[in-house]
Amino acid sequence: MSHSGTVAAQPPVKMGLAIPNSKLCMWLFLGTEIMFFTAFIGTYLVLRLGSPGWPSDVADTHINVRAGGVNTFVLIFSSYLVVLAHESMLKHQFQKAWKLMCAVLFFGVVFLGIKSMEYKGKFDHDIVPGHIAENDAQALQKLVNEFSKSRDAMTNALITDDPKSEKKLSPAQKLVGLPQLISSESDTTKKDALKALGELRDATAQLKEGVRKDTLVLHTGTDHEVNPDITTKLEKFRTNEHTARYFTAHDPHPMVYGNVFASVYFLMTGFHAIHVIVGMILWIFPILRGAKLDASYTDWVENSGLYWHFVDLVWIFLFPLIYIVEFGSHAV
């Protein structure tokens, strides 16, 4: 519209970018994802640099470098398969693309399987946020707590409440009558089990008394070995056929900054694993098309591929930062 009556030449309206909307959205989403993971990685780096004595020894952290390395290869190989799948979609080789996407899904499962084994190792050694003693006193207190829990679990399993009485007894109340129970028990196996319970009760009481009176030390000698009195007790109740199934105490192993380490380890690898699962869900849709897979899924495969590569990209940084580098562990 012109006031002078002549029509001014308007530049042609150009809407958006010369890429599919879905791809633009995926890239915008990945932009937020970059900030999401950089927040975690950046915070981890900053925490680690500011924490002298950060645990980095594999004997403490039970980090499995080999498992991390294999998982790195698994993700890189799956990324390579993704670009081949996208190439096949562009060339209208849909069945080849379908097979490649199935392989990507399979390697996603392999990655999560290896990750689960690593997590199991962490749980077995009780490397869980809030569970890690950071000095000797905490380690001894934790040991006493674990002995007490094992004793109570075994007590509740072996000594049941009187069904005629409505009164529920605590494990401590049940243990009062233990000597009478042992002497009156006719079944040899049960008698031995009750005797083992008595030994566990006594060992727990000894440890508790040692901590209370401050006479129990975690380490002895110049080589900083764990007190043999503690290791003997642990070994005894782990191998005893009656106590083994109830005994859940861990080797005392204080780790400075262990709880923060465990928090950031599970936070970063956990969120990464969730992203792997989401990526696998994205692959399931074109895979479910089976023989009907066609060119309409080309953009889907490309966008899912971008997401999968990003997940690979995050792991590329997590692997050296969590599994390999030791900086900050001795620095102030």
Binding site: H309, D312, I316, F317, F319, P320, V325, E326
Partner: peptide, 25 residues
């Protein structure tokens, strides 16, 4: 030293990230 290992592995990680970002993505 303390810093050479992180420099090597993080340098390698940056190279790997560039490969994935530039070519695969």
């Amino acid at each position: 030293g303390v810093w050479l290992l992180p420099i090597i592995v993080l340098g390698v990680a940056v190279m790997k990230a560039l490969c994935v970002l530039l070519i695969f993505m």
